[in-house]
Computed example of a mutant assay.
Amino acid sequence: MKRFVYIITDRNRKNLHVGMCTDLLKTIKFYGDMPTLFFDSSQQLNRLVYFEEINTEEQAMARFQQVSTYTRMQKEKMIRPVNPDWIDLTAGLNFESGIRVRPTNYGRPSIPSARRAVTF
């Protein structure tokens, strides 16, 4: 079973949290559902900036322990070559897995479901 070692951060890139999981999308959803579990609300971890897919549990645990001991500068040196703008990688994962996220309607009028035929 594949394992993922990931680094997640808040919107200000103040905290870098290293984790390991088997289902990356479910884990990211968990962080979104429980925003104040690890930190207060201003430091909500919601931006996946780095992840590695590893085939075996032993290799994943060794890599997780290694990355967990890194300093902030070492973690940034890992992130910058693959994600220089520190964008959230969750959107790409959603696209790859075939999950369609429906955009929310922010105050725009909805389109009526039954349209009238226009006659001239």
Rank of each mutant, 00 (worst) to 15 (best):
R47E: 01
G98H: 09
T22Y: 14
Q66V: 03
Q65E: 10
E76M: 07
R11N: 10
I79T: 00
E52I: 04
T36K: 06
Y70L: 02
T71C: 14
L24K: 05
P35I: 03
T69Q: 12
Q65K: 08
Y31S: 07
I28Y: 03
P103E: 11
Y6G: 01
C21V: 09
I79P: 04
M78N: 06
T119K: 07
N12L: 11
Q59M: 11
D40L: 11
K14T: 11
D33Q: 05
M20L: 14
G98W: 01
K2V: 12
F51H: 02
R108P: 01
G92H: 09
S97R: 12
A91M: 03
N12F: 11
L48C: 04
A114D: 15
S110E: 12
Q65N: 12
V5T: 00
Q43P: 00
V18C: 11
C21G: 10
V82A: 02
F95S: 11
M20Y: 02
M1G: 14
T36M: 05
D10G: 01
N12P: 01
P81C: 03
L24G: 03
V49R: 00
Q74F: 15
N55K: 15
S110T: 10
V18L: 08
M34E: 04
P84N: 08
R3V: 09
K77R: 14
R108L: 00
R80M: 09
R47T: 02
Q43H: 14
E58L: 07
A62L: 15
H17W: 12
K75Y: 13
S97N: 15
G32C: 01
I111S: 12
I79K: 03
K2E: 15
Y106W: 15
P112S: 08
K29S: 08
M61D: 07
T56L: 14
S68C: 08
N83C: 00
L25A: 08
M61Y: 10
S68K: 03
N55E: 15
Q44V: 06
K77H: 13
D85H: 13
E58S: 08
F30I: 06
D33R: 00
I7G: 03
G32Y: 01
N83L: 00
N83E: 00
T90K: 05
K14F: 13
M73W: 13
S113N: 14
K75V: 13
L48S: 03
N105I: 12
V118S: 00
T36A: 05
